[in-house]
Amino acid sequence: MGLSDVLRLIEEKLGAGVWRCDAAGQMQWSRGFFGLLGLDPHAVAPSYTEIQRRIHPDDRGPNRDPSELMTERTLLDGEFRIVRPNGALRWIHCHTEVLLDSEGEPECVLGIALDITAQRRLLQTLTIDAERYSALAQVAGGVLWIGSSDGRITALPNGEKRPDAQRFYGKGWVDLLHEEEREAALRSWTASVETGRPYSIEHRLRQPDDTYRWYRCTAVPVTNGDGGIREWMGISIDLDQEKLSVQHPETSRLTGAQLRAARGILNWSVKQLAARTGISSAIIRRLEEYDDAPPMPDETMETLRRVFSDAGIEFLFPTVGKPAVRPRQ
């Protein structure tokens, strides 16, 4: 097998072609390069003009003299689309090198072209998937995270700009959980990591300003071909408003715990609350002894509600969890 036969075999197997252009702008093409352009070597003469004609209009550069290839390699360097005579569209990657003569002067330009259509199609598919992935994250409105097979968080695809992002990595997320949900969340996560069962739990998560918000955290395993867990893909969705949504606050009964908390937020003493409401200190103390709703006349309850509301306090009666109190937002 001669060298020309080896070149032909390589071009056929790799979808490649070679061209050469001398200082006068005269070109030579290999059989493989003719094939890349979809041209018949017996019907078309090699030329820079013919290459330009085959390049997709959107990728085609300005008309230049082929002799400029000696000094301007970018004329045919890089990736571009070509349109074959039968209308087929192909992506080509072309790499050029200037070869020098014995005097150190440019003698010719050698180009190697590869058909990268398959890689481009794969890249397009990956790009579409990435865009869908990003759109899905926006629609869900949550923080996406990736965990290792042993349960450590390794990446936050759409949460890297969070001021507290670094605190999530590894096992750091555990310290951000509210202490009342921490043990249950960790126990559930450990069980999922060990069994491969999907993980789903609701918990409060500490924010950068040290307040807490409710999240629904869900994760599923991503497996290898042998069924082993390669990593975990999870999303944490903020459901604080849902959790703390007020259910008929006008008819909900205030609890003693809410009264204590509201007075604490305002830093009022019992005497100060009594002065603002006209309710005796003894009655207020007795009402605050209850954690749940104490027995009190509707008039008393409405007076307390009004005074606290005027002071900027909001009473919450969530669908799940205990009644709560917070400054009005």
Rank of each mutant, 00 (worst) to 15 (best):
residue 3 L to D: 12
residue 6 V to P: 07
residue 9 L to Y: 07
residue 11 E to K: 03
residue 23 A to S: 15
residue 24 A to F: 13
residue 32 G to S: 09
residue 33 F to L: 12
residue 35 G to E: 14
residue 45 A to W: 02
residue 45 A to I: 15
residue 48 Y to F: 15
residue 54 R to Y: 01
residue 54 R to W: 03
residue 55 I to N: 02
residue 55 I to M: 00
residue 58 D to L: 11
residue 61 G to P: 05
residue 71 T to H: 05
residue 74 T to S: 12
residue 75 L to M: 13
residue 76 L to D: 02
residue 76 L to M: 06
residue 82 I to R: 01
residue 82 I to W: 01
residue 83 V to R: 06
residue 83 V to E: 04
residue 84 R to A: 07
residue 95 H to P: 00
residue 99 L to M: 10
residue 101 D to Q: 06
residue 101 D to F: 08
residue 107 E to D: 12
residue 108 C to T: 10
residue 111 G to A: 09
residue 113 A to E: 00
residue 117 T to K: 00
residue 120 R to V: 12
residue 120 R to S: 02
residue 124 Q to G: 15
residue 130 A to W: 09
residue 143 V to T: 10
residue 143 V to G: 02
residue 143 V to P: 00
residue 144 L to N: 06
residue 150 D to K: 12
residue 154 T to L: 10
residue 161 K to I: 10
residue 161 K to C: 05
residue 162 R to V: 11
residue 164 D to R: 06
residue 165 A to Y: 02
residue 166 Q to T: 15
residue 167 R to T: 15
residue 167 R to P: 05
residue 172 G to D: 10
residue 172 G to K: 13
residue 174 V to E: 14
residue 174 V to N: 12
residue 180 E to Q: 10
residue 189 W to M: 12
residue 191 A to M: 10
residue 192 S to G: 10
residue 192 S to N: 05
residue 195 T to D: 11
residue 204 R to K: 11
residue 207 Q to L: 15
residue 211 T to A: 14
residue 213 R to G: 04
residue 214 W to H: 11
residue 217 C to Q: 03
residue 224 N to Q: 13
residue 224 N to D: 11
residue 226 D to S: 14
residue 230 R to K: 08
residue 234 G to H: 01
residue 237 I to S: 03
residue 245 S to H: 14
residue 251 T to V: 14
residue 255 T to N: 00
residue 262 A to G: 02
residue 263 R to H: 12
residue 263 R to C: 04
residue 266 L to A: 07
residue 267 N to D: 14
residue 268 W to A: 08
residue 269 S to P: 01
residue 269 S to G: 11
residue 272 Q to Y: 11
residue 276 R to F: 04
residue 280 S to H: 07
residue 289 E to N: 08
residue 291 D to M: 08
residue 294 P to H: 03
residue 296 M to K: 04
residue 303 T to D: 07
residue 310 D to G: 11
residue 313 I to R: 02
residue 328 R to T: 14
residue 329 Q to M: 11
